Simulated scan of single mutants.
Amino acid sequence: MKYCSIASGSNGNCYYVAKGDDAVLIDVGINRKHVELRMARAGIDPRSVKAIFITHEHTDHIRGLMVFSKRYQVPIYLTRGTYEGARLPLPSHLVHFIQPDDRIKVGELTVLGIPKYHDAKEPCSFVVTDGKVNISIMTDLGRGCDNVKHVIQHSDVLLLESNYDTEMLLSGPYPYYLKNRIRGGWGHLSNAEALQVFVENKTSRLKHLILGHLSGENNTVELVESVFRPHCKGIALSVARRTEESPLFYLAEEEIKVISPIVFEQTTLIYEEISFYSSSM
């Protein structure tokens, strides 16, 4: 399994997961030219993308969707509520409606919808699995509900939202209504909330934690790393950036490698085993 963050943050989100010749994108929240540029730097061919899955209709998740999907004729999977909220003139032959908890096969991959709390019409997160390895993309979480906890317990790779530092948010320039929206149970997880749900539900199965969807105004990479690193013994830790792609990671049964052509360092972890996907999710 290969995976990377192409963009992550309130200014745009896009995530890539692949196995063999089968690749999917979760959201296309930056414009098509930037998606292509970042893919090229990571060694990814945009023509390899077999499907796009959209979590919800907010602009930072769909900004580049229409142009990218039309250019490469990529099928789009999204809930009817997300489609209605997006109000994009998407080509009808590319649109496939799903339920928030559907399971969709894309070649060797299965993409599972995970219903969540967020201030959108019919949102869901996604887990991408090949039946053995589970790569979970969990952002825009109003709260660490039972679905979120279950996903963490069964993840090999977890990209988890850690959106804001509470003190920075409360003392910052955002208007009162926006501060309440963000922290009111239908917006985003704070660093403290993300840490709590992570620590309480992580298992020995987890190999790689990536923190994502950081606020540009109410968080910093350094702060997030300092909060989580003491709790990641034996787990590779990364922070997805707002302005650039992550390395392209490769997860095999016994190691994680950085395989991006522009990053030559390599991170390797050794494990006892990778367990099979839990059918109860």
Rank of each mutant, 00 (worst) to 15 (best):
E272L: 04
V258F: 05
P175N: 03
S279K: 15
V148W: 10
D146P: 04
L88R: 04
A18I: 10
I44L: 01
R32A: 14
T267D: 01
K2I: 00
K70L: 03
N13G: 12
K121D: 12
R71T: 03
L25V: 14
K105A: 03
D27T: 13
V263G: 00
V221I: 15
N13V: 14
L209M: 01
Q99V: 05
D140V: 00
Q196V: 03
I182D: 06
Q99Y: 02
N201D: 04
N163I: 02
V49Q: 03
S69V: 00
I26N: 12
T110A: 11
V221N: 06
Q266M: 06
I137C: 12
I98C: 04
R32M: 15
K2H: 10
S215H: 06
L189D: 08
R38S: 09
N191A: 15
E244R: 07
G144S: 02
H58T: 11
V95Q: 03
L195Q: 01
S48H: 12
L206C: 08
E265R: 06
H213N: 14
G113I: 11
G81K: 03
V49M: 08
D22E: 14
F276Q: 11
G43N: 14
T59Y: 14
Q266R: 10
S8R: 00
Q196M: 02
E255C: 02
V263E: 15
Q73V: 10
D22I: 02
I114G: 04
F198T: 02
H118N: 09
S204E: 13
I104Q: 07
P91R: 07
I256K: 02
A194P: 11
N163Y: 10
D21Y: 01
M168E: 12
N218Q: 12
T243H: 10
I52H: 01
V157R: 07
S136R: 10
F276W: 07
D45W: 05
T220G: 12
E225G: 13
I152P: 08
K233M: 01
D21P: 06
C14D: 09
V258N: 14
I274K: 03
A252M: 10
V133Y: 03
G20T: 14
E254D: 15
V258A: 08
P261Y: 10
L158M: 09
T267V: 05
